[in-house]
Design a protein around this nucleic acid. Sequence first.
RNA 1: GGUCCAGUAGCUCAGUUGGAUAGAGCAAUAGCCUUCUAAGCUAUGGGUCGUGGGUUCGAAUCCCGCCUGGAUCACCA
Length: 597
Amino acid sequence: MVIENQIKASVTKAIKELYGADIAPESVQLQLTRKDMKGDYTIVVFPLMKVSKKNPVETGNELGQFLQSDCSDIAGFEVIKGFLNVQLSDAYWLGELNKESGNQAIGMIEAKSDSPLVMIEYSSPNTNKPLHLGHIRNNLLGYSLSRIVTANGNRVVKTNIVNDRGIHICKSMLAWKKWGEGQTPESTGKKGDHLVGDYYVKFDQEFKKEQAELMANGSTKEDAEANSALMKEAREMLLKWEAQDPEVYALWKQMNNWVYKGFDITYKTMGVDFDKIYYESDTYKVGRDMVIEGLNKEVFYRQEDNSVWADLQKDGLDEKLLLRSDGTSVYMTQDIGTAKLRYDDYDIDKMVYVVGNEQNYHFKVLAILLDRLGLNWGKDLVHFSYGMVELPEGKMKSREGTVVDADDLMQAMVDTARDMSKELGKLEGYSEEDAEKVYKTIALGALKYFILKVDPRKNMTFDPKESIDFNGNTGPFIQYTYARIQSIGRKANEKGFTSPDKVELSVELSAKEVQLQKMISNFSAVVKEAGNVYSPAVIANYVYDLAKEFNQFYHDSPIVVEEDTAKRDMRLLLCRNVAAVIKNGMWMLGIDVPERM
RNA sequence: GGUCCAGUAGCUCAGUUGGAUAGAGCAAUAGCCUUCUAAGCUAUGGGUCGUGGGUUCGAAUCCCGCCUGGAUCACCA
């Protein structure tokens, strides 16, 4: 904010004139005053005692007096212990209010054609089972990040790498072939991803059965695993797939398509999308070529058994396998290939991978390898590393059936939102269809906010009971605040009050009103911060605080019913700006706000 | 064992470029709807900020040791 620089400059000047010392304006410790104290900005006096050679209170008072006469926006000050609290004039805050008047894009910077291009990868599902709670966190974080990065004035490409090949999908295919009796999503009425997931589970069950039988007949665990006929069949299927055996390939395509159709529904419900989707079946060969190229350039080396490695010891890491001795590729190879394709497709300035923190090591290695292979953004790639989602009873385990399915969860949230809304008697006069849209907005708002408000780096506990709560620090609370403001706008219109563009600078402001305007003025700094540290949680917490603040203001300040025209205008404009900030903040979280709820 | 991350109220979480009396929500208790949406507002109780040292005018925040939990160090993805 401009005012901050002004105050810092003024403090610098004061130090020069009062104590004859030179200090750098940036060294002035300036912060927003604690909410429970009087004042707007606080200057920490302690560091200045060295040059003032006086005690903190004296220094503070002298400084305060100087500032008040030097800076016209400063209306008063107060020194408490070693802190100089400066109070800005109402006129200053009203000026700030007028400045953002009618700005729907408040807090957002528009990208230009030469703005940095940021590619964000998220979601990255396997095609052998439906999406679950862990994927939800990934998708919501990725999508929100894309919005935050956009709001910071960058061009953004959202991308998804689909892990569509490998032994896991062969397991589902094999199980379907053996026991599926030709079932399809159409014949069963099941979502394709769930149907395929069922066969993945089926494979595992049959495999376990087989293992138990082998061990009952005297095999050791190791032998049983080595002699598994099922596993052998799955591996053979993978080889056939790699050789593009027509039958296997056709089945693979068919089952993957079922899954994609299912995923599309889930993504749509979740409200996320992608600009460009990559498939591992297209990228793994490119990766192999890249590794061979690196081998020729002697960036990598080949061992006697024909496997290819990267030596990372001078980077403080180990050696890393890139191609198996049989020439097939590993995970790392595929990521190199995907990176190469993206590099060719887009003029990427920055690449962000939204992937769980269990892969920290992988991305550290990937960054080094891409750099060695000459991809300019490789070294600076961002691994947006987020923590796991745990349930109150511990980790999700598919074997124990404790995995929370994404579709089920979202459906349950919508049902709860509907019940709650009907019970509260809201949305009377809405058509069934419109009401249903609002239920969905609230349900998804609750889920998204619940997940995004937590610092992404941390593991989080997901308690279904809590997530479905719509009171307190929740998405619906914020949505409700927005709807409330919209309602005020409608009431004002009914009474014929046009929302003003400018308010008079002579209006007196209450502490709450100043506080609200202060928060609005701070919004763009919050957006910047969120962009710098890649954290939707920063936005989430800010928007919550703002909504909380607004509700307090709302509670004891008449708005539409205020008789004083100037005051009413000021409050109406304040409402409008708060609404715009809430809407934009929520947009950055990928959460919609309803006009009524 | 090496590396990385985390530990804050009964529960879920904020707060770390060092600043004032560590904040919210949930849960509990007590209030507020014949003026703008009560999915709201107000009040009360609840803390050795894992632990022991250190640096400093000042430490939840920085440094070192230790304890606890998690991740990772695969010719798995």
